[in-house]
Design a protein around this nucleic acid. Structure first.
Lengths: 221, 221
DNA sequence: AAACCTCCTGAACGACCGTTCACATTGGCC
DNA sequence: GGCCAATGTGAACGGTCGTTCAGGAGGTTT
């Protein structure tokens, strides 16, 4: 923990101070805060750390955000909203076949969690520090994404193109959707561009696994 | 966050103070700390909170633990070690068929993450606050568990009873093992005994999904 | 040039942090 | 009884926290 508290701020600062005037300070603060939250976690990152990393002092934060809490919410809400939008869009453009919809969903979801894995990691890990009003907003968006999956599964079962595992003879689509989302979400915890697979390959692999999990029949048969 | 900082300690205290002399104070502290870490997260739980929750004062902690950090490690290491032991034991008792081994592994792993979901949640979420020496210890155990799965998959492929998805023609067993573990681990984030499925049913469902993911051939054919 | 924004500075505030320590309190053992 | 080790108390220490605020710097409008 001692390492965590001291190591980061300085080396980031030198780099960040150069690009400071390039963009408006609100964005510089957002970016610096984001980087630090990702690296060390919201509660141990101080306002002083954040502002130092973009070449300012503590007090300046409050010209742009009401509080440290609002800053975190601003960061999480923007990535979460974007994710929800992308998922809806992917499903809508899949042409109505549940297999294509599920494939499109998983592809977009996994690729985003690989490419923007730091954003995803922060959104998932730090959400608990928000006050109750702000956290409800984020949770609603998560439920919406889960319900997209549940809906796809429901259609697939109804049309007879999915045959997911049963417990006691009947399906629990919510549990299956959660399992599916969990494995896709948490690529952000271990995937790295230096690893064995590209983002594209990850998306393919996870799409395959998802279709297998729900017992999808081959698409062109 | 303000809620998080104040709400919990008092109501826990009244209940805990009764059972205090029932067990040695070390265990009372461990239990109280564990409950608070689970509820609110390591960095915002204070030593004063923990000790108040078991009817003592701050200073008494240091008769039993060297530091707050050691207390967290003590909690995480014991549940992690137990998990690793259980997994090894489950696989060893499966009789050598990779399908049976994978099924046994998933069953034990999922049931434990349902039953002791709070323990799992703390171990997974708070690990990052440990100092570097102590965190390495835990990570080694996690890698060991992942390698158990990779080994099972490797045997299954070699024997021709698994046919997991390929990328560019070849398998990436490590990625598949991670996907599998991720979905099993994170039942601890959403499963609750009040939900639709029992632990037993969860284990069954996840075993089914795992066998599908890796393309297992039917066991008795 | 004067007035006026916008933005930043850095000292200050009150609160709380993990940890230490001199000092009770307890209960077993001679 | 006296002694000892174990254990708890609560004030105190040096720090850091999020946030506030009086004042300064720089640019634009009048």
């Amino acid at each position: 923990m001692s390492k965590r508290k001291t190591v980061v701020a300085d080396d980031v600062a030198t780099a960040a101070v150069a690009e400071r005037e390039a963009r408006p300070p609100v964005e510089a603060i957002r970016a610096a805060a984001f980087a630090q939250f990702a690296e060390r976690g919201y509660p141990v990152v101080t306002v002083r750390d954040i502002m130092k990393a973009c070449g300012l002092t503590q007090g300046a934060l409050y010209n742009h955000f009401k509080s440290k809490d609002e800053l975190l919410h601003d960061i999480i809400a923007s990535t979460q909203g974007e994710l929800e939008r992308l998922c809806q869009q992917a499903v809508a453009g899949a042409g109505g076949d549940p297999r294509a919809e599920l494939a499109a969903f998983v592809r977009v979801y996994v690729m985003r969690h690989c490419r923007l894995r730091i954003e995803a990691l922060v959104a998932n890990r730090e959400i608990g520090w928000l006050d109750t009003a702000r956290v409800a907003d984020i949770r609603r968006s998560r439920r919406a994404i889960r319900d997209i999956v549940v809906t796809i599964l429901g259609h697939g079962v109804a049309k007879g193109v999915f045959d997911p595992p049963r417990v006691e003879g009947k399906h629990d689509l919510k549990a299956i959707a959660m399992a599916l989302l969990d494995q896709c979400t948490h690529v952000s915890m271990w995937y790295g561009p230096g690893g064995d697979l590209t983002e594209e390959q990850m998306a393919k692999l996870y799409t395959d696994m998802a279709l297998r999990m729900v017992g999808a029949t081959p698409q062109s048969a």
